[in-house]
Design a protein around this nucleic acid. Structure first.
Lengths: 146, 146
DNA sequence: CGAGTTGTAATTGCAACGGTTACTTCTGTT
DNA sequence: AACAGAAGTAACCGTTGCAATTACAACTCG
């Protein structure tokens, strides 16, 4: 299973907000046009980012503002905000192994720490990247374009 | 999005095959009972593992045999076998960012290596665990039970 | 007040998942 | 040769999540 495109869309949103905040009023329509999707999709993601406390959204007038320095917003924060998972567990464990089977009643214990370490490896790597990295990377790419 | 339970089911299968291979004929019915699901679900997963070259399945008579030493079958092998993903990309990138927008036409380049490194972190950790680890871990758990 | 914008509910089409039934194909045994 | 047991597989179901869309209420500012 793939991780929802909401994640890359959210990163795209942050990059747009950062790049265009002084030039344009960055509304859900504006963002939808850059991302090439529907404004409602954007608003829903903005809502998730807002609920997670990562941004503020100006009602009525429009506009998006990060609530923290960009270096303090990691990919992990964004991921957790837009792709909430039941119990925070990346792996969907089959629910009811047979407790009368020796393997069935021990498999969960056997796998648990291994699955956790795999999930942790992914999430730790996500924590290494921040929105500030996006800011710098985009500046560089735009400079190369010119 | 969670990773399909086919992954933990497949690991459960390997553990059962290893634990019961001398005592019982390990059929899809037998496995379905330990895992507490439908035999057809098991057969479908066995088919995926077979296609990936990880096991052989005895038609007619029943039974599952790994094709390699257990230490040479990693969690990654199992994951790739049962959870095939389009283009092998963990992250679903939104398809059509607007090329007329400076951010839109650069976002893919900007994110690509970062997303790849996150995926790689997960997959590398998956490669650290093998079915042999399951064998040893299960033996230990069963010894503690006795 | 009115224009522009966000917030949100409701609906749609689609795909994947897990489950189930039913049937065919294969294999070893009697 | 027939039979029983088992894998292989197609077809279908209900549920869920996703992305998209329409429609409308709530809000803000000029």
């Amino acid at each position: 299973m793939q991780i929802s495109s909401r994640f890359t869309v959210a990163l795209h949103i942050f990059s747009c907000v950062d790049t265009f905040k002084d030039e344009y009023k960055v509304t859900s329509d504006f963002l939808a046009s850059s991302i090439n999707t529907n404004p409602v999709i954007i608003r829903r993601i903005l809502g998730q980012l807002k609920n997670a406390g990562l941004i503020e959204v100006a009602r009525g007038t429009g506009g998006v503002t990060p609530t923290r320095p960009l270096a303090e917003i990691t990919f992990y924060d964004v991921y957790k905000a837009v792709d909430p998972i039941e119990d925070d567990e990346l792996f969907h464990f089959h629910e009811n192994p047979n407790p009368e089977c020796p393997v069935g009643r021990n498999i969960h214990n056997l796998l648990n720490e291994k699955l956790e370490s795999i999930q942790r490896a992914m999430e730790d790597e996500m924590r290494r990247y921040t929105i500030e990295d996006l800011h710098e990377g985009m500046e560089k790419l735009l400079a190369e374009e010119a």
